[in-house]
Simulated assay, not measured.
Amino acid sequence: MKSKNSIIKTAKQTIELQSQAILHLSDLVNNDFADAVNLIHQSKGRVIITGIGKSAIIATKIVATLNSTGTPAVFMHAADAIHGDLGLILEDDVVVFISKSGNTPEIKVLVPFIKNAKNKMIAITGNKDSYLGQKVDYVLNAFVEKEACPNNLAPTTSTTAQLVIGDALAICLLELRGFSSKDFAKYHPGGALGKKLYLRVQDLSSINQKPQVSMNTSIKDVIVEISEKMLGVAAVVENKKIIGIITDGDLRRMLSKVDNFASVTAKDIMSVNPKRIDADAMAIDAMDVMELHGISQLLVEENGNYAGVVHIHDLIKEGII
């Protein structure tokens, strides 16, 4: 059994080796990369990404990244392609091959068929002088000195390099398309990520009760209002406008200072100019305000009028936090 120190040393060496290889990739980005990006951007078709073995697995991830950032992409396994799947390639599609060596048998069989169909071809390969590198229109160089595998056999550093090239391709296309956070939300409606991109404050505050009192409301009635609405806070409102806030903390501080509070009203203990947020703001913006000021509730306004309360528990419940 290996010692813990030995395991940690191997892990660090693996990470350092791959990080150095990734850093070296930036020196390999050239005009072919820029031309490939422009080709895909101007294409009327889709991006078909193909590979075999571990490269095929990387291809599926790059396809997913492209689809989620506005570039339609389809995965085609190289082995399946030469057994019937070539039919999914349409006239205007751009085909991207992923292969470390550029000389795998399946790739060498597949390339001539794609070339005969006159589809534009791009290679992500570690060997630009390979059969693949010589046949495609553009080569995205993913060369690495060695694999992280001590035998220099298992695809490790090379697949990391392929993945990074694919990510760089996707981000360049994202910028060319002017792909915004709103666009991103359309493709990611589910889960916490989607909610951060589309959920608005009013979506949360509208389902809460709406605690409010006037300046002359007695402390007894303030306590009842806060207790009944169960948000730990009440807005002090006059003519629909927020003029103050009373929190559980304000009540506790009052009780520690005042012996007889029968004559005390909301205006005597309220905090003026409370933090507030517009109903149409993003829920994630409410979270940022709460974190910045160390508070757990925000009063909500709509067209300048009091519209309710958003609580930190609402954000937690929806997975924003």
Rank of each mutant, 00 (worst) to 15 (best):
N127C: 13
N127H: 14
K128C: 14
K128I: 15
K128S: 15
K128P: 09
K128H: 13
K128F: 03
K128D: 03
D129A: 11
D129R: 12
S130V: 09
S130W: 01
S130A: 08
S130C: 10
S130Y: 11
S130F: 12
S130N: 09
S130G: 08
Y131D: 12
Y131Q: 07
Y131V: 11
Y131N: 13
L132W: 05
L132S: 06
L132F: 10
L132T: 04
L132V: 07
L132R: 07
G133R: 03
G133A: 12
G133Y: 06
G133N: 07
G133M: 06
G133S: 11
Q134I: 15
Q134T: 15
Q134K: 15
K135M: 15
K135N: 12
K135V: 09
V136P: 06
V136R: 04
D137M: 05
D137L: 09
D137S: 10
D137Y: 08
D137T: 10
Y138A: 00
Y138R: 03
Y138Q: 01
Y138W: 03
Y138E: 08
V139G: 05
V139M: 02
L140A: 06
L140N: 12
L140W: 02
L140D: 08
L140T: 04
L140Y: 06
L140K: 01
N141A: 10
A142G: 09
A142F: 00
F143E: 13
F143M: 12
F143Y: 14
F143S: 13
F143W: 14
F143L: 13
F143V: 13
V144T: 09
V144D: 02
V144Y: 02
V144W: 05
E145Q: 14
E145I: 12
E145G: 02
E145M: 09
E145Y: 08
K146C: 00
K146S: 15
K146Q: 15
E147P: 00
E147W: 02
E147F: 01
E147D: 04
E147Q: 04
E147I: 01
A148V: 08
A148M: 06
C149A: 05
C149V: 07
C149E: 03
C149K: 01
P150R: 01
P150L: 04
P150T: 06
N151V: 13
N151H: 15
N151T: 14
N152D: 15
N152E: 12
L153E: 07
L153D: 05
L153Q: 05
L153N: 04
A154D: 07
A154C: 01
A154L: 04
A154R: 02
P155H: 00
P155G: 01
P155F: 07
P155W: 03
T156F: 00
T156L: 02
T156E: 09
T157Q: 03
T157Y: 05
S158C: 05
S158G: 09
